[in-house]
Every structure is written in structure tokens, then in C-alpha cells.
Design a protein around this nucleic acid. Structure first.
Length: 274
DNA sequence: CCCCTATCCTGAGGGC
DNA sequence: TGCCCTCAGGATAGGG
């Protein structure tokens, strides 16, 4: 599942690959994934636009186009972006193919169709609420200890629910939320407002640390994340808890516990996390 | 505003 | 060999 490090990996490769390129033709095949506007409008209006740059906001990939237009892509759980030579074999469930003026194609595929493609003038996308309000970016200077304190101290929800709430912190998903809680020594099910000052500080350090490690390793390929060229990320081997229920904690040897928090499978160490 | 639950969606994997 | 069931989860709609 693409979270901040996986999306960042895609964005860092996508910028150099498509900046300056003009989109010459568009196929948007599957209804559902291409949400805004309807895909016929996208196919009619996107060609002719030149890509000026690519940025990330939370888990959203934002391609800046000419005339203040944007092509926004969310990969959902199983989405992929690739840049390939035109005519290369397509995978099943390819929802968007944007031909570029260098003979390559930007493609988006997504088996489960939880991903989204949005296009239009930035102001229109914003006014329509196409991208929901997103919280602080955890790898920026805006992610201060006091900002995180404010989020945690005012919520009675499980701490993991706060970490997963994109309107509060943008970019954490199930993998890195569990990893951050383990590194901080905090049980994911603890009520956020009951954490001690020291625990909040530990989380404030752990969140950027686990995300930066994921970015460094070009993402976690647990089952199906791939970068622009189809290569897996290397971070799965570094995971401490996610996907390791029943296996020994790498810190203390205790078999890792599995539970459900905020509706998500959650793995933690009974001994290391209190 | 706050929080929780159901829903979307397909393929992998287990049980028999 | 194959059918059926459960599970995976990011985001969001809707209920309390």
C-alpha cells in the first residue's frame, strides 16, 4: 500500500521523467478511477498540456500543468504509475494512459480501483473539494513537537487512529503507523490524550525517522508496490512489526502480537510497547 | 465537531 | 482441481 515513502519515491522519479513533456493523447478506460472530471472530458482536455513539475502532498501525486491545471493521482492501495515506451505491454486494470511527446507513456493501473485520478484547473479542484484537507507534512519543519502534542492531547481516539487521520498528519498509512508506534515504544491502541509527554516526544522523533528510512530504501514492497520502472522497494526487510505477527520482536525476542485498532490490522510488541 | 462502522474492489490463500 | 469463504486496507459516506 503506497504511503508517504512510496509516493515520494514515485514523485522523485516522475519529475525528471515527465517535466517539460507535453501530453499528446489520453486514454482513460475504466469508469470509477478517473473521477473528476468524467473521463471523456479528461481525454478531450488533457492533451496539449505540458507538465511543469511533479510534487507530493500527503499520499497524492500532483502533476503541475500549464495554465494552473493539475493532474492529481492517488494510488489507493494497489495503484501503480509507470513510464514506459509507447506500445509496451500493458498490465490488466490499466485505467489511464497519457502519451508523451518523447514516445513514452505515463500509465496508471490499479487492480482494486481504490485509486483516483483528478484533473482540472487547480482552483476548480480546490473549490470542488477534489483533494480533501490534509494535515501537517511529517517530513517538514512544520511537524513540530508542539503540533503533534496538540493533535494527541485533544483526542480520545487510539493513537494509531490519530496517526492514520490524513486531515491531521498527511502520509502515514498502516505500515508506517505501526512502525512508528513500535519505535516509540507506544501501544497503538492507547488513547492519544493519555500518552505522557515523554511518549509524545518519542512519537515525534519516531514518525519522521521511520518515514525517512522508508524513503531512503525507495519504499516498502510488501506485496505490490513498484516504482516508476516496476522495481520493488527495499524497505520490507527493515520492518520491525508490520506483517510480522507471531514472529519475534527484533528488539526483545517476544512474539509480536496482532490486534485490530481503528479497523486496521495492527502488530505490536507486548513487552517493548506500553 | 467528534468518533465509529460499513462500503468500495479484486485476488490471494485456506479449508474441504 | 475447484469452489467458497475470508481477508487485505485508504478514503469516505452516513449514523449516533
Amino acid at each position: 500500500m503506497p504511503e508517504l515513502p512510496e509516493v515520494e519515491t514515485v514523485v522523485r522519479d516522475l519529475g525528471p521523467a515527465v517535466a517539460g513533456r507535453t501530453i499528446t493523447a489520453v486514454e482513460a478506460s475504466e469508469p470509477g478511477v478517473v473521477r473528476f472530471p468524467v473521463r471523456e472530458v479528461l481525454a478531450a482536455q488533457l492533451p496539449g498540456h505540458r507538465v511543469e513539475g511533479v510534487a507530493r502532498r500527503g499520499k497524492y501525486i500532483v502533476c503541475r500543468l500549464q495554465r494552473d491545471h493539475e493532474l492529481v493521482i492517488h494510488l489507493g492501495m494497489t495503484g501503480h504509475l509507470t513510464v514506459r515506451e509507447a506500445g509496451a505491454r500493458r498490465v490488466r486494470h490499466t485505467h489511464l494512459v497519457a502519451s508523451l511527446d518523447d514516445g513514452r507513456e505515463l500509465r496508471m493501473d490499479d487492480v482494486r480501483r481504490f485509486g483516483r485520478v483528478l484533473f482540472g484547473p487547480r482552483a476548480v479542484l480546490e473549490a470542488a473539494g477534489a483533494i480533501p484537507r490534509l494535515g501537517v507534512e511529517p517530513l517538514t519543519e512544520g511537524f513540530t513537537a508542539s503540533v503533534l502534542d496538540g493533535l494527541l492531547r485533544t483526542s480520545v481516539r487510539p493513537v494509531k487512529a490519530v496517526l492514520l487521520d490524513q486531515s491531521r498528519i498527511a502520509g502515514l498509512g498502516n505500515i508506517y503507523a505501526d512502525e512508528a508506534c513500535h519505535q516509540a515504544g507506544v501501544r497503538p491502541g492507547r488513547r492519544a490524550h493519555r500518552l505522557t509527554r515523554a511518549e509524545r516526544a518519542a512519537l515525534h522523533a519516531a514518525i519522521p525517522a521511520v518515514l525517512a528510512a522508508g524513503v531512503r530504501d525507495r519504499g516498502t514492497t510488501f506485496d505490490d508496490f513498484r516504482d516508476l520502472e516496476g522495481a520493488p522497494g527495499a524497505h520490507a526487510a527493515e520492518l520491525q512489526v508490520y506483517g510480522r505477527a507471531g514472529q519475534p520482536c527484533r528488539r526483545c525476542g517476544e512474539p509480536l502480537a496482532r490486534t485490530v485498532v481503528a479497523g486496521r490490522t495492527t502488530v505490536y510488541c507486548r513487552r517493548c510497547q506500553r
